[in-house]
């Protein structure tokens, strides 16, 4: 039998399988924690930080990513506090300023309540979520992709920058890439980037209700876990 633990998420007691992540436990019961780099069945690395929650313990709270946090008996998690909403919004703003040409990122920005972008747009074509790398490495054991470089210069690359013959051409990397679908209005040219914001009506952004998953369309663009299950 599966062993379970009980924890509280946003005030609601939730049962979860022992060893599950807080993110999975929340999604399972329909609480939406926005996420980007998490893909079910792949190792979580905590790269995008969008899935942050507050872990409240003895009166003080710690901000941490829910995809890397394992459920524990009696845990008290806040996914939608004012603090989390603000931090998440700022993170999503950083992301969308970096890569506005992605429906997934634009969707996440909307979901996280980004109303304006206070940085000059950069229009890059990778957000380094590492989905492609992990899928290739863990699912297919192909190791055809990896990260090279550090900091600003970090990027996804084939070994020695050429497609190796052990790449199985399966296409998973593009399938799971949040950058592969452009915003509905088509690709934005340099200098014309903007916050799309079209799907706002569908997003669960009202602060007073719990961030319940409504199976919104937002997740489709980047394969939100709930759309994949």
């Amino acid at each position: 039998m599966i062993q379970t633990v009980t924890l509280t998420i946003d005030g609601v007691p939730v049962k979860a399988a022992k060893g599950a992540s807080v993110l999975d436990a929340a999604l399972e019961v329909g609480i939406c924690i926005p996420h980007l780099c998490h893909v079910p069945f792949l190792q979580d690395t905590g790269a995008c930080r969008i899935c942050i929650v507050e872990n409240v313990k003895n009166g003080s709270s710690r901000v941490t990513t829910s995809c890397t946090l394992t459920v524990q008996e009696g845990m008290n998690i806040q996914t939608n506090s004012e603090k989390i909403r603000k931090l998440r919004r700022n993170l999503a703003e950083l992301l969308v300023a970096q890569a506005p040409n992605s429906k997934a990122i634009q969707d996440i920005a909307v979901r996280c309540g980004v109303k304006e972008v206070r940085y000059p747009f950069r229009n890059e074509n990778c957000v380094q979520c590492g989905r492609c790398v992990r899928y290739c490495t863990e699912m297919w054991k192909a190791n055809a992709l990896g990260f090279v470089g550090r900091g600003k210069n970090r990027r996804v690359e084939f070994p020695f920058a050429t497609r190796p013959d052990f790449c199985k051409n399966c296409g998973s990397c593009t399938l799971y890439c949040p950058m592969s679908i452009t915003p509905c209005g088509g690709p934005m040219k340099r200098g014309e980037e903007h916050l799309c914001g079209k799907c706002e009506s569908q997003a669960v952004t009202a602060p007073n209700i719990i961030g319940a998953c409504t199976r919104c369309e937002l997740g489709k663009g980047f394969s939100c876990t709930r759309h994949m299950l």
Partner: peptide, 21 residues
């Protein structure tokens, strides 16, 4: 720090870079 950040997570890779900007 921007040079030395490993670049794995968003706030540090992009955030510190924006702070520098």
């Amino acid at each position: 720090l921007q040079d030395e950040s490993c670049g794995k997570c968003v706030p540090c890779r992009i955030g510190v870079d924006r702070m520098l900007e």
